[in-house]
């Protein structure tokens, strides 16, 4: 943002006080430039969308202007219509993610340490990993019915592997020199695990957690598009069937925001737990 822009938005009064203006302008600039560098392209894209839609460069019934999307989002949130969907979606992905964490991390810690267990399970793991969870969804439906269980299970299935594999990787990459050091101080297997292996694996585990959180939302939508009557994913589909395009985009936007929030929470947690690895701790 340039000097002129600031002046024009602040009005003519400021221009009469030359001593105040440059300082204020430079402060604004110092604040705005990094934002612009980071989000400039996003803002540009949104602006292009808005203009293209209102000017009729694209079909506004397929790409409605942003203000329509935002007001659709606001209306459905304020009226409480979407809240139920958000709640059920959070519940499905939350239970699945929590189960993947509770099973994936301990299993990964064991597998990373015990070569025999890892060798025995690795081919199976690699096979399942390469099989898309979505391809298995019909199987889960067959086994568990079309209700909540199969939806939660397919999300759980897809989120388990990133966490499991990241944990195994983290444990296996623990510096053996540190383990040896701990051994010379009389640390037994359990102490070494608790004080060396576990803390050393935390950064790798977080990589898996963040990957899994993204996967959870991805699978959530897919699961909710098949045989659901509630949920954000259902709303995306439903709005499209009913040609409520602004609402469809509103639901998509909500999903993106959900993903951003989930990632932000994990990043925050990681910062707290891995302060030692921060560049400016």
């Amino acid at each position: 943002m340039s000097y002129e822009n600031v002046n024009s938005t602040l009005g003519a009064d400021f221009r009469l006080r030359p001593s105040a203006t440059p300082r204020f302008a430079s402060q604004v600039q110092a604040f705005v430039s990094p934002l612009l560098a980071r989000y400039g392209i996003v803002l540009g894209f949104l602006a292009l969308w808005q203009i293209a839609s209102t000017q009729g460069w694209v079909n506004p019934s397929v790409f409605p202007p942003l203000d329509l999307i935002l007001s659709a989002l606001w209306d459905s949130l304020a009226s409480g219509a979407l809240l139920d969907d958000i709640a059920i979606s959070l519940q499905r992905s939350g239970i699945a993610f929590a189960a993947a964490v509770v099973i994936g991390i301990p299993l990964g810690l064991v597998m990373g340490q015990a070569r025999i267990v890892e060798q025995a399970l690795d081919p199976l793991l690699q096979f399942f990993r390469q099989t898309s969870a979505l391809a298995l969804y019909p199987v889960f439906i067959l086994l568990l019915g079309l209700g909540e269980t199969s939806k939660v299970f397919v999300i759980f299935w897809a989120t388990l592997f990133p966490i499991l594999l990241a944990t195994i990787g983290g444990v296996k990459e623990v510096d053996t020199k540190l383990v040896e050091m701990a051994r010379t101080y009389g640390a037994g297997r359990l102490t070494i695990f608790r004080r060396v292996v576990l803390p050393a694996s935390v950064p790798a585990i977080f990589v898996g957690l963040r990957l899994s959180a993204t996967t959870a939302l991805l699978l959530l939508i897919a699961a909710e598009m098949i045989g659901a009557n509630k949920g954000i994913g259902f709303q995306v589909m439903n709005a499209q069937y009913n040609f409520q395009i602004p609402l469809m985009f509103a639901a998509i936007l909500l999903l993106a925001l959900l993903g951003l929030v989930a990632n932000a929470v994990l990043v925050l947690l990681q910062r707290r737990l891995c302060r030692w690895a921060q560049p400016n701790a």
């Binding site: 540190l178 050091m181 101080y185 803390p199 935390v202 030692w276």
Partner: peptide
């Protein structure tokens, strides 16, 4: 006995 290695071998999280 206590050992001092060539690398400090400190635990980075402590």
């Amino acid at each position: 006995r206590a050992v001092i290695f060539q690398e400090p071998r400190l635990l980075p999280w402590l």
